[in-house]
Simulated assay, not measured.
Amino acid sequence: MRLVETPLDRPLAELLAAPPGEALRLCWLGQAGFVIDGGGRRAVIDPYLSDSLAEKYRGKAFPHRRMMPAPVAPDLVAHVDLVLATHAHTDHLDPGTLPALLAANPGATLLAPRSAREAALQRSGVDPSRLRLIEAGESCMIAGIGVTATRAAHETLERDAEGFHRFLGLALRIGGATVFHSGDTIPFDGQLEEVRALAADLALFPVNGRDALRASQGVPGNLTLDEALALAREAGIPALIAHHFDLFDFSTVPRPEVEAATGSSQRPQAVAASVGMAYGLDQSAVERAP
């Protein structure tokens, strides 16, 4: 399968007010957030569409002011079947986004890590009957969308008091393809084998890296651009969308660097996420990395 970029032909809010189609289509929401359509279903993963972190960290060393506005209001994203969170950090499980998004989509289920149950209920405001939980190594089917969870290390492989992993990657089987969102992660022992076993068609990997300054302020990092490209290549994933940049000035990579690195990659085929594009897979072009 070959990754295809298409400029949006209308505002994102208008696009997401319409029902999802059969073909796989992804739209970036900024940071780690994506809308993923396919097979007549719509999933939203890690949406951060508010300024809740700016409010939380006002006056602090890293004030979390947005470099880019939210591309759509959460209550304007319609026809959602499944909302997913990879972990409980606010830019992935956001109290400023989830209540409005889930209220506008009363039939949608919220999927969160087992370690994040209480945070998911508190921040979303949903009834527990609408919450599904998952742990690394588990799989489930929700509204016709298959989900498999893997471990993630942000920056360590952490577990809660009950032994559940705090950080997850989530692979979605939707629209005839497997899309793997790694969650926030750095490389760790056993990662390659877990990711390769997914046989994913498309990877969504963070590329904002990590450094001592962020670590000194308690801000964990992610894969570097080189690490993201290497993981996709070695795991046999033919296509990659690089994300988790352009939102906070203390935790980003210059867009020209992301575009240069992804544009020069032959394996995997890689692009830098943009809110002005929709992404799909040409399923007539079967190109899997060796």
Rank of each mutant, 00 (worst) to 15 (best):
S129A: 15
A54Q: 12
S129M: 13
L8C: 06
K60R: 15
S274Y: 03
G30K: 03
A23Q: 14
R288N: 06
M68N: 15
V253P: 08
A149N: 08
V44S: 11
H244R: 14
N222T: 14
V195F: 06
E158L: 14
L84H: 08
Q269A: 06
A108V: 07
R132P: 00
P268M: 00
E259M: 02
A197S: 15
F245D: 05
W28E: 00
L3E: 07
V80L: 05
R66I: 00
L93S: 06
M67F: 12
R132Q: 10
A13S: 14
R173M: 05
A13R: 12
H154M: 11
V258Y: 00
G176H: 12
E227V: 13
A32L: 14
P256C: 03
I145V: 15
L281S: 13
G30D: 10
P69R: 10
P106Q: 11
A197N: 10
D9L: 10
F34A: 05
A261V: 08
Y57L: 06
R114V: 08
A235T: 11
A112F: 12
L157T: 09
A273E: 03
P206A: 15
V179W: 08
F34G: 02
E234M: 13
A239N: 15
A149D: 02
L121Y: 12
P187D: 12
V258C: 02
G280Q: 01
S274M: 02
T262Q: 02
A116D: 10
E259W: 02
P268W: 01
F167Q: 09
V207L: 13
A285P: 03
A70K: 02
A203G: 03
L49F: 07
A177W: 14
A197K: 09
A54I: 09
P256S: 06
G163P: 11
A261R: 15
G38K: 12
A212F: 10
P63I: 06
V4S: 00
T156A: 13
D201T: 14
P106W: 13
G190C: 03
V207I: 13
A73P: 03
H154S: 04
L110C: 02
E118Y: 08
M68E: 15
M1C: 09
P238K: 06
R233H: 05
L170Y: 11
R288E: 10
W28T: 04
R42P: 02
A149H: 07
A203S: 04
E158R: 14
V195S: 01
G169D: 05
A54N: 07
S182E: 09
S115I: 09
V286G: 12
S50Q: 04
P113I: 13
G137Y: 01
G218L: 04
D9E: 15
L131F: 11
C27I: 00
S50W: 04
V195W: 02
I45S: 06
L225S: 04
